[in-house]
Protein backbone atom coordinates (compact mmCIF):
# COMPACT_ATOMS: atom_id res chain seq x y z
CA UNK A 1 0.00 0.00 0.00
CA UNK A 2 1.27 3.47 -0.86
CA UNK A 3 0.19 6.76 0.59
CA UNK A 4 1.07 10.35 -0.39
CA UNK A 5 1.56 12.88 2.37
CA UNK A 6 2.81 16.43 2.65
CA UNK A 7 5.19 16.91 5.52
CA UNK A 8 4.09 19.76 7.78
CA UNK A 9 7.13 19.86 10.01
CA UNK A 10 8.51 22.93 8.30
CA UNK A 11 7.49 25.34 5.54
CA UNK A 12 9.34 23.30 2.89
CA UNK A 13 6.34 21.01 2.64
CA UNK A 14 8.13 17.89 1.31
CA UNK A 15 5.93 15.53 -0.66
CA UNK A 16 6.30 12.17 1.01
CA UNK A 17 5.52 8.75 -0.31
CA UNK A 18 4.88 6.19 2.40
CA UNK A 19 4.96 2.53 1.43
CA UNK A 20 3.47 0.05 3.78
CA UNK A 21 4.78 -3.45 3.14
CA UNK A 22 4.39 -6.23 5.68
CA UNK A 23 5.88 -4.99 8.91
CA UNK A 24 8.09 -2.21 7.55
CA UNK A 25 7.14 1.31 6.60
CA UNK A 26 9.42 3.12 4.18
CA UNK A 27 9.29 6.85 3.50
CA UNK A 28 10.70 8.65 0.49
CA UNK A 29 10.68 12.27 -0.61
CA UNK A 30 11.75 13.71 2.74
CA UNK A 31 14.68 16.08 2.83
CA UNK A 32 15.35 15.49 6.53
CA UNK A 33 14.76 12.82 9.19
CA UNK A 34 11.80 14.70 10.67
CA UNK A 35 9.89 13.82 7.52
CA UNK A 36 10.29 10.09 8.13
CA UNK A 37 9.11 10.18 11.72
CA UNK A 38 6.27 12.48 10.76
CA UNK A 39 5.05 10.05 8.12
CA UNK A 40 5.19 7.08 10.45
CA UNK A 41 3.32 8.88 13.17
CA UNK A 42 0.81 10.14 10.64
CA UNK A 43 -0.09 6.56 9.71
CA UNK A 44 -0.61 5.38 13.26
CA UNK A 45 -2.02 8.39 15.02
CA UNK A 46 -1.77 11.86 13.50
CA UNK A 47 -0.58 14.34 16.11
CA UNK A 48 -0.51 18.11 16.11
CA UNK A 49 0.67 21.02 18.18
CA UNK A 50 -2.36 22.90 19.43
CA UNK A 51 -2.14 26.68 19.70
CA UNK A 52 -4.93 28.75 21.19
CA UNK A 53 -5.61 31.23 23.98
CA UNK A 54 -6.68 31.05 27.60
CA UNK A 55 -8.72 33.65 29.46
CA UNK A 56 -6.95 35.50 32.21
CA UNK A 57 -8.08 37.45 35.23
CA UNK A 58 -6.25 40.60 34.09
CA UNK A 59 -8.05 43.39 32.25
CA UNK A 60 -4.83 44.63 30.67
CA UNK A 61 -4.09 41.17 29.29
CA UNK A 62 -7.41 39.38 28.90
CA UNK A 63 -6.18 36.51 26.75
CA UNK A 64 -2.95 34.57 27.03
CA UNK A 65 -1.65 32.78 23.92
CA UNK A 66 -0.73 29.16 24.71
CA UNK A 67 0.51 26.06 22.96
CA UNK A 68 1.05 22.45 23.73
CA UNK A 69 4.61 21.53 24.61
CA UNK A 70 4.76 18.77 22.03
CA UNK A 71 2.02 17.24 19.98
CA UNK A 72 -1.32 15.81 20.98
CA UNK A 73 -3.47 13.43 18.94
CA UNK A 74 -5.48 15.26 16.31
CA UNK A 75 -8.58 13.48 17.50
CA UNK A 76 -8.17 15.00 20.97
CA UNK A 77 -8.02 18.55 19.73
CA UNK A 78 -11.67 19.46 20.27
CA UNK A 79 -11.73 17.82 23.67
CA UNK A 80 -8.64 19.79 24.60
CA UNK A 81 -10.26 23.01 23.38
CA UNK A 82 -13.21 22.30 25.65
CA UNK A 83 -10.95 21.85 28.63
CA UNK A 84 -8.96 24.98 27.77
CA UNK A 85 -12.12 27.07 27.50
CA UNK A 86 -12.78 26.43 31.19
CA UNK A 87 -9.39 27.72 32.32
CA UNK A 88 -8.67 31.16 33.73
CA UNK A 89 -5.09 32.22 34.33
CA UNK A 90 -4.75 34.05 37.62
CA UNK A 91 -1.00 34.63 37.69
CA UNK A 92 1.06 36.72 35.35
CA UNK A 93 2.90 34.11 33.29
CA UNK A 94 5.78 34.38 30.86
CA UNK A 95 6.63 32.33 27.78
CA UNK A 96 7.38 28.73 28.75
CA UNK A 97 5.50 28.87 32.07
CA UNK A 98 3.17 25.91 32.45
CA UNK A 99 -0.53 26.68 32.36
CA UNK A 100 -1.64 23.06 32.74
CA UNK A 101 0.57 20.02 33.42
CA UNK A 102 -1.45 17.46 31.55
CA UNK A 103 -3.83 18.61 28.90
CA UNK A 104 -6.93 16.53 28.31
CA UNK A 105 -5.80 13.04 29.27
CA UNK A 106 -2.43 13.41 27.58
CA UNK A 107 1.00 13.76 29.08
CA UNK A 108 1.51 16.98 27.18
CA UNK A 109 1.70 20.28 29.01
CA UNK A 110 0.07 23.51 27.96
CA UNK A 111 2.49 26.44 28.13
CA UNK A 112 2.21 30.20 27.91
CA UNK A 113 3.69 31.75 24.77
CA UNK A 114 3.44 35.42 25.65
CA UNK A 115 4.63 37.60 28.46
CA UNK A 116 1.83 38.82 30.68
CA UNK A 117 4.17 41.00 32.64
CA UNK A 118 4.13 43.22 29.57
CA UNK A 119 0.58 44.38 30.17
CA UNK A 120 -1.11 46.41 27.45
CA UNK A 121 -0.39 49.60 29.31
CA UNK A 122 3.16 49.54 30.40
CA UNK A 123 5.44 52.46 30.85
CA UNK A 124 5.84 54.52 27.74
CA UNK A 125 9.02 56.22 26.77
CA UNK A 126 10.99 54.50 29.49
CA UNK A 127 13.47 51.72 29.18
CA UNK A 128 11.09 49.52 31.07
CA UNK A 129 9.70 46.81 28.82
CA UNK A 130 7.11 45.68 31.28
CA UNK A 131 6.30 45.41 34.90
CA UNK A 132 8.43 42.79 36.42
CA UNK A 133 7.41 40.47 39.17
CA UNK A 134 4.51 38.13 38.91
CA UNK A 135 1.38 39.62 40.35
CA UNK A 136 -1.40 37.43 41.51
Amino acid sequence: MEKMLVCIQCPQGCKLTVSHSGEGVSVTGNKCPRGASYAQQELINPCRTLTTTVRTAFVDFPLLPVRTLGEIPLKSVFGAMGEISRLVVKKRLRPGDVVLEKLYNTDVALIATDDMTMGEKYAKGSEDYGRDGILS
Partner: peptide
Protein backbone atom coordinates in the same frame (compact mmCIF):
# COMPACT_ATOMS: atom_id res chain seq x y z
CA UNK B 1 -17.18 35.55 22.53
CA UNK B 2 -14.67 32.73 22.25
CA UNK B 3 -14.10 30.12 24.96
CA UNK B 4 -17.75 29.26 25.21
CA UNK B 5 -16.83 25.61 25.06
CA UNK B 6 -19.16 24.91 27.96
CA UNK B 7 -18.69 24.35 31.65
CA UNK B 8 -17.56 26.77 34.30
CA UNK B 9 -14.25 28.50 34.44
CA UNK B 10 -11.86 27.50 37.15
Amino acid sequence: ETKTGGGTRT
